[in-house]
Amino acid sequence: MSQVHVHTKINGDTTEFLCEADEPLLDVLRDRLGLTGAKEGCGTGDCGACSVMVDDRLVCSCLVLGAEAEGRTIETIEGMADGEKLHPLQQKFLDHAALQCGICTPGFLVAAKALLDHNPDPTETEVRYWLAGNLCRCTGYDKIVRAVMDTAAEMRGA
């Protein structure tokens, strides 16, 4: 099987890779580029653990082909912190104990950042519906929702 040669920008870095034509972007990120922050919880778009941004749209990277990424800009959890400075969402997740096992956390953070970029003052209901595609089995979502709301409040104040 001949491979597809893809040129992208990932977390600000120009990146080229070869992938199989039917290979999901998630597998490319994890297996070829060593970006294992996006997780495969289902592979069918039902859990959100593989959430990344493609051209400023929040997507499940398991539902995108690597080949589709040609010329696209991709952002992953690995690009969220600014060097050693955590993004406010990352810090609030720690402050609120909004993670237990942590497998869903990268997906939640990417999705929550997309929410706050798009709506800096979400209601609790808006947070819950925006994040409905991110499954968490440990926390019951309570502390996650609180962390997102608190981040939004802090970022609005900043």
Partner: peptide, 23 residues
């Protein structure tokens, strides 16, 4: 008290290595 967990930063930055992350 409620301090930050020791594995916290790894978990929020995608650095924590889970089962499928090993090569």
């Amino acid at each position: 008290t409620r301090p930050e967990r020791p594995d916290g930063v790894d978990k929020v930055t995608g650095r924590a290595r889970f089962g499928a992350d090993m090569v």
